[in-house]
Design a protein around this nucleic acid. Structure first.
Lengths: 183, 183
DNA sequence: CACGATTTTCATTTTATTCTGAAAATTAAA
DNA sequence: TTTAATTTTCAGAATAAAATGAAAATCGTG
């Protein structure tokens, strides 16, 4: 009967625990992703790539997440389109490898930029159109509509500017902002 | 042949234009909602109630949006659960009437509070668990995992605090914040 | 060029979400 | 209490979104 575990047993146990923790994180992050407008697989791939120390291939993703090639492929491409994942060339290797941006402030900046482009700007478009159209209307109901559109437009403009601020943040400035906002 | 429109014709034309603009807003807002994690009908009901000057019944919603009773009902209830819509009692009326919060800063505060509760807090839970579990691990890969979880945890904590700030914002303070952030 | 490796596409299937509509439950007036 | 109005529920239908897997396209090397 062993009194002390050998070094390799410790390591094996730790590796297993790491794998388990990572799986848990990947799975939970995937579930949370759905709550945002993000599909589960995309969130899972992102979670996996963020917590792994080496770039991975499509085949690695397929194996680890038990998903098809097509699914892995299209979601990786989507993550690349977001700017959250990039391809990496490994010398002597023919396959493409992928790695995620790991710096959280950089991730935040990227997400701010993309969500502004994909969500805030279209919303602003709609609101501005409505504000214009209703500018000259006379009835009380129409005036109320105009006012509401103006208020929403003002607010979404504000959000847009915040997104700009965040996406232009230097890493150091983030800390400052945090202090300013919360101190 | 008429040279000048009568007052009532002007009004009719304006009413029609208002209806068209509102429909456009409702439809676009619904489409945008999907991009967030919000279902189309819920976003449409919210858009409609925000831009209307009188509270509406379930039947009004059914008619205006051409949706079933069940659909109208469950999405109104969901909006009430979010705190974005409230019921209104109209004297002498048996039906329930609904109205939306119209103040955009109030809406922002509500959304900040709810999204914190529904999205940020569960995420924090997962991250903290991962940070704890991986605290004592030794291998390089495990240390990298721990570090990444710590960074994410720190960031999401920050987001949580921002959400608190926003949701405790007085209306007047919002303007100040805006100035501070953007000035 | 030709061949094997790899990536990309996409028609089909599967799964998840949303919606309907009618029945059941509740409510309040008679 | 009875009745009619109104709200709520929920099984099933419809729709939308995501995933599969195999074929086609592309790539890079000998």
């Amino acid at each position: 009967m062993k009194i002390v575990s050998s070094k390799s047993e410790q390591t094996n146990a730790e590796m297993a625990a790491l794998k388990a923790a990572r799986d848990e994180f990947v799975s939970q992050w995937g579930a949370l992703g759905s709550q945002w407008g993000i599909n589960r697989t995309m969130a899972q791939i992102h979670a996996l790539l963020m917590t792994v120390d080496q770039p991975m291939t499509t085949d690695d993703l397929m194996e680890q997440l038990e998903i098809s090639r097509g699914n892995a492929h299209s979601n990786v491409k989507e993550l690349i389109a977001w700017g959250l994942v990039r391809t990496v060339v490994i010398r002597g290797e023919r396959k493409e490898y992928f790695e995620a941006e790991k710096d959280v402030w950089e991730i935040a900046r990227t997400v701010a930029r993309e969500r502004k482009r994909r969500e805030i700007e279209p919303a602003l478009g709609v609101l501005r159109e409505c504000v214009e159209k209703s500018r000259e209307w006379d009835s009380a109901e129409a005036k109320a509509f105009h006012k509401q559109m103006r208020q929403l437009e003002e607010f979404v403009s504000f959000a847009s500017k915040v997104a700009d601020q965040v996406s232009s943040m230097k890493h150091g400035f983030a800390v400052q902002l945090a202090a300013k906002l919360l101190g």
